[in-house]
Design a protein around this nucleic acid. Structure first.
Length: 704
DNA sequence: ACGGATGATACT
DNA sequence: TAGTATCAT
């Protein structure tokens, strides 16, 4: 059982940088008189003074906590300054912070956090300007906290830190960390200079430790975790404060295993943990107990999805489809704007629209989370998104009601309420420009009329990001015209125009629609082949026609704005250049990588999307069957998709597992990287096997 | 049935 | 895959 395992040959340098109470800083920058005052940002304030989502450190001293109510905060800290989150379309809008979060040159993991892999930068620095040779060390670096470093006299702290950072006989790994500290200190100063925001950072050999460290000394400080301090750091560290263990898993560790600190975990064998929590989670737990985490820094610069949502708690629950439609329209409008911005700024398009809702059924205490989420191909344009979202909602409602054996007697709805709505856009891929690197690489080398290469190039060069269709057909069928009217609001406290429709009539009408959907579903459930072929025709058209680039008005405006806006210059200090060099190469590689890895997929998705747009004109097409058909199309196409190659596709006649890693070095750099992403260790099937190959122990990371 | 809005990811 | 569940800030 106890198998010799490498200790921690993790020579990486990872930094976690975290903006200090970010939303507060954004507001303080906007309103500098707030600086230094106890301040918090609240969203909404009608109910108990709103909910706090960010709290300044001055206010924290008075005991104010995030997710307190505004009223409670006032109680704890009467002088507190409360700033409201901007409201647009009747809901909190976080664009201010989203935009501020894009400032500077940092990779963005979340709105206010980044992980950086500084290994290369630190190595370079160590070779070219090792800390021990630096004559004058920046003040900021000297303020670093180094875990495990004994500080006898607070006045000597900086001198102690300087000695550690510049120690000539330190281990190689410690030296790398020291370089990381220099780089991060400089980076933080750059961030401050360019954005006026302070941040805190942790520097360690992996993400988990860096994350822990960044939170240890806030605000505006940084903490280094030498390997020698890891054991002591984790021994008494509360298990629930570890990332990923703040929820049910952490609770289970406490109550089922009696594990309250990370150190407590050490007594459990990997097998034991695997048997209780599965092979992946078990190994992951075993590793984090030892400060081991192989999780790589994702180079991703941009979010993978966009969403807009709102809750309607308690008495505000939506009780009519009309009110649901109203709010869906608002949410979709915001989403649509953000998608347009993303397209303009990042040249990407989203391919899937998903609707989530929470609902309750009166009398059924357990019924409130079961509202099914639904998704469909995303068509650009506010109106289309609104239509599709409503249709998705209706489909969900139908399932919800039938699941609970709901009978629509009459027009009254005393049975259900919607307590949360959200729409989101995902599967965001770059708009193809130029040629896919792999396709290009192979077609240059093996020029052939091979249909696959040909079609890839054609589609990539010609596919249109969006198509303005005059009709309102969607993939789900046509939204009944009466649904497009404005409906009276129920009890959300919002006043919009009272339509002159009879409420009862309306409800009746809508009930019929929902019922209609139910009936259709059994009847269209199994689409035939013929149908699918018909739907593929527009796909062919798309390939042969001129590109139809369609940008709506707001897109154009945004493009103009972007052109007008000059780029902010940023000076380079001597140290930051190591980071810049690293970062620039990383990010350009990342761009290519995204395009490469995902660009191929576009023609397939576009095929099904455009196919669904034109031929189906029947009035109430059942959604489930549509989705089913789309799946079929995808399934058919994916057989020859490059996406499937890493799984060992016949088409390429190479098994990914048989590739000799050394040959990769011979390939062009961008292709090397692409292949490497495919070669990264895949997660093990979630089955516990005993006495299996020793090779499993060579993968101490990627637990989860 | 007020911890909201917004993401990411893993499981199935 | 689409849909669900969990986790985080």
């Amino acid at each position: 059982m106890p198998v010799a395992r490498r200790e921690t040959c993790d020579g990486r340098v990872i930094a976690h940088v975290d903006m200090d109470c970010f939303y507060v800083q954004v507001e303080q920058r906007k309103q500098p008189s707030l600086r230094g005052l106890p301040t918090a940002v609240v969203q909404y304030n009608s109910y108990k003074g709103g909910g706090l989502i960010a709290v300044s450190y001055e206010a924290r001293k008075s005991g104010v906590k995030r997710s307190m109510r505004g009223d409670e905060a006032k109680e704890a800290c009467p002088q507190i300054q409360l700033v409201q989150v901007p409201v647009a379309r009747g809901k909190a809008n976080l664009n201010t912070y989203r935009n501020a979060g894009s400032e500077g040159r940092c990779e963005r993991a979340s709105i206010d956090e980044v992980y950086l892999d500084l290994t290369d930068a630190a190595q370079t620095m160590l070779m070219e300007t090792p800390p021990e040779s630096v004559e004058h060390v920046q003040e900021e670096v000297l303020k670093s906290h180094v875990l495990g470093l004994q500080i006898e006299d607070e006045d000597d702290a900086k001198e102690e830190v300087r000695k550690w950072l510049c120690k000539s006989d330190a281990s190689y790994q410690d030296k790398l960390l020291a370089c990381g500290a220099f780089i991060v200190a400089d980076l933080r100063m750059q961030v401050l200079k360019e954005t006026e925001f302070t941040c805190s950072a942790g520097v360690a050999h992996n993400k988990m430790l860096a994350k822990l460290a960044s939170a240890m000394n806030k605000p505006a400080q940084q903490t280094v975790v030498p390997q020698s301090s890891v054991e002591g750091l984790l021994e008494y560290f509360p298990i629930k404060k570890m990332k990923q263990l703040g929820g049910k898993l952490g609770t289970s560790l406490q109550s089922d295993l009696g594990v309250n600190t990370v150190g407590d975990l050490l007594q459990f064998s990997e097998d034991k943990l695997q048997q209780r929590y599965g092979i992946n989670t078990g190994t992951w737990l075993w590793n984090i107990a030892r400060g081991i985490s192989g999780e790589e820094v994702e180079g991703r610069l941009l979010p993978k999805s966009h969403g807009s949502g709102k809750t309607f708690p308690g008495p505000q629950a939506l009780k009519t489809i009309g009110s649901v439609q109203h709010w869906l329209n608002e949410l979709c409008e915001e989403l649509s704007e953000r998608l347009d911005s993303d397209m303009d700024q990042n040249k990407r398009i989203a391919h899937t629209l998903t609707l989530h809702a929470r609902a309750y059924k009166t009398g059924d205490s357990d019924s409130h989370k079961k509202f099914p989420s639904k998704s469909c191909p995303l068509r650009y344009g506010t109106t289309k998104i609104q239509e599709d979202a409503l249709t998705l909602f209706l489909a969900g409602l139908r399932d919800f009601l039938s699941f609970y054996n709901f009978k629509t007697h009459g027009n009254e709805n005393n049975n259900w309420g919607i307590t949360a709505l959200s729409v989101s856009a995902s599967k965001i891929v770059p708009i193809p420009s130029g040629t896919h690197s792999i396709a290009k690489y192979f077609s240059e080398r093996f020029p052939s009329g091979s249909s696959s290469n040909q079609s890839v190039d054609d589609v990539i060069d010609e596919v249109a990001p969006s198509s303005p269709s005059a009709g309102s057909d969607n993939c789900l069928g046509v939204i009944p015209s009466e649904l497009q009217l404005e409906y009276p609001e129920e009890d959300t406290g919002v006043n919009h125009s009272k339509a002159c429709l009879d409420h009862q009539d309306l409800l009746c009408n809508l009930s019929e629609k929902v019922d209609g959907l139910t009936e259709e579903s059994s009847h269209v459930a199994l689409p035939g082949n013929e149908d699918r072929m018909t739907r593929n025709e527009p796909y062919r058209d798309l390939l042969s026609k001129e590109p139809r680039l369609a940008f709506n008005a707001s897109s154009l405006k945004a493009v103009e704005k972007k052109k007008a806006a000059g780029k902010k210059p940023h000076g380079n200090s001597s140290i930051i250049k190591f980071f810049n060099n690293y970062h620039n190469s990383q990010s350009s590689f990342e761009q290519k990588n995204v395009t490469n890895a995902q660009g191929v997929k576009i023609p397939l998705l576009h095929g099904s999307q455009s196919a669904s747009g034109s031929n189906l004109t029947s009035n109430q097409v059942e959604m489930a069957s549509e989705i089913h058909q789309l799946e079929e199309i995808d399934a058919n196409n994916s057989g020859c998709s490059i996406d499937t190659m890493p799984q060992g596709s016949q088409a390429w006649s190479y098994n990914i597992d048989e590739i000799d890693p050394s040959i990769i070095d011979e390939l062009p750099p961008e292709i090397q990287e692409e292949l490497r992403t495919w070669l990264r260790p895949r997660k093990r099937p979630n089955v516990v096997k005993r006495g299996s190959s020793i090779t499993q122990y060579f993968r101490p990371d990627k637990g989860r």
